[in-house]
Simulated assay, not measured.
Amino acid sequence: MTKCIECEAEISLPAGLEKGEVIDCPECGVELEVVNAEKGELRVAEVEGEDWGQ
């Protein structure tokens, strides 16, 4: 169990999460990247911009 960085909602982490996986907060919908699954450390996932070759 950990908390959302944005809204402080309690988040239950599914078993088997690995570093780099992205989950959504069930309360506010922000995408969170797993930094350390064992410690429940999350950060706001970086949004990669689309490169349309412009």
Rank of each mutant, 00 (worst) to 15 (best):
residue 34 V to Q: 05
residue 42 L to G: 01
residue 2 T to A: 03
residue 4 C to P: 05
residue 12 S to R: 13
residue 26 P to A: 03
residue 27 E to I: 08
residue 17 L to D: 09
residue 20 G to S: 00
residue 27 E to Y: 14
residue 28 C to H: 07
residue 52 W to R: 12
residue 36 N to W: 01
residue 11 I to N: 02
residue 14 P to S: 05
residue 35 V to Q: 02
residue 3 K to V: 12
residue 49 G to V: 12
residue 45 A to F: 10
residue 17 L to T: 09
residue 34 V to W: 05
residue 19 K to W: 02
residue 11 I to G: 03
residue 50 E to T: 11
residue 3 K to Y: 12
residue 26 P to H: 07
residue 54 Q to D: 14
residue 41 E to Q: 14
residue 7 C to F: 09
residue 23 I to V: 11
residue 50 E to G: 00
residue 15 A to T: 11
residue 35 V to H: 10
residue 4 C to D: 07
residue 51 D to G: 11
residue 11 I to F: 10
residue 49 G to C: 03
residue 22 V to D: 03
residue 40 G to E: 01
residue 28 C to M: 09
residue 48 E to K: 14
residue 11 I to V: 01
residue 11 I to M: 02
residue 10 E to Q: 13
residue 39 K to M: 15
residue 6 E to D: 10
residue 51 D to P: 04
residue 3 K to R: 15
residue 52 W to M: 12
residue 38 E to S: 11
residue 23 I to L: 14
residue 17 L to K: 02
residue 53 G to N: 10
residue 46 E to Q: 13
residue 23 I to S: 03
residue 39 K to Q: 14
residue 40 G to Q: 07
residue 20 G to Y: 06
residue 47 V to K: 15
residue 25 C to T: 08
residue 17 L to H: 08
residue 33 E to P: 06
residue 21 E to V: 07
residue 27 E to S: 15
residue 15 A to P: 10
residue 54 Q to N: 12
residue 5 I to Q: 08
residue 8 E to S: 15
residue 50 E to D: 11
residue 53 G to Q: 03
residue 15 A to Y: 09
residue 45 A to H: 06
residue 35 V to M: 10
residue 26 P to N: 02
residue 49 G to Y: 04
residue 41 E to F: 12
residue 32 L to C: 02
residue 16 G to K: 08
residue 42 L to C: 08
residue 18 E to R: 14
residue 45 A to M: 01
residue 4 C to H: 09
residue 8 E to T: 13
residue 13 L to M: 04
residue 7 C to Q: 03
residue 47 V to H: 14
residue 38 E to G: 06
residue 18 E to N: 11
residue 38 E to C: 08
residue 18 E to T: 15
residue 50 E to N: 06
residue 50 E to W: 10
residue 1 M to N: 09
residue 24 D to I: 07
residue 49 G to A: 13
residue 53 G to H: 03
residue 24 D to E: 15
residue 5 I to C: 09
residue 14 P to Q: 05
residue 9 A to D: 11
residue 37 A to M: 00
residue 24 D to A: 15
residue 7 C to G: 06
residue 42 L to W: 01
residue 11 I to K: 01
residue 5 I to H: 07
residue 45 A to G: 08
residue 43 R to H: 03
residue 25 C to M: 02
residue 27 E to C: 08
residue 16 G to Y: 04
residue 29 G to N: 10
residue 22 V to M: 03
residue 13 L to F: 03
residue 53 G to V: 01
residue 1 M to Q: 12
residue 10 E to I: 15
residue 33 E to V: 13
residue 28 C to Q: 06
residue 11 I to E: 04
residue 44 V to G: 05
residue 26 P to I: 07
residue 48 E to H: 14
residue 40 G to W: 00
residue 11 I to P: 03
residue 36 N to I: 00
residue 17 L to F: 09
residue 54 Q to W: 12
residue 29 G to P: 06
residue 20 G to Q: 04
residue 50 E to H: 11
residue 30 V to Q: 04
residue 1 M to R: 03
residue 36 N to K: 00
residue 16 G to A: 07
residue 53 G to W: 10
residue 46 E to N: 08
residue 46 E to Y: 07
residue 45 A to K: 11
residue 12 S to C: 09
residue 6 E to F: 11
residue 16 G to M: 10
residue 30 V to K: 09
residue 46 E to A: 14
residue 18 E to P: 01
residue 34 V to N: 02
residue 48 E to T: 14
residue 32 L to F: 04
residue 38 E to W: 00
residue 13 L to Q: 06
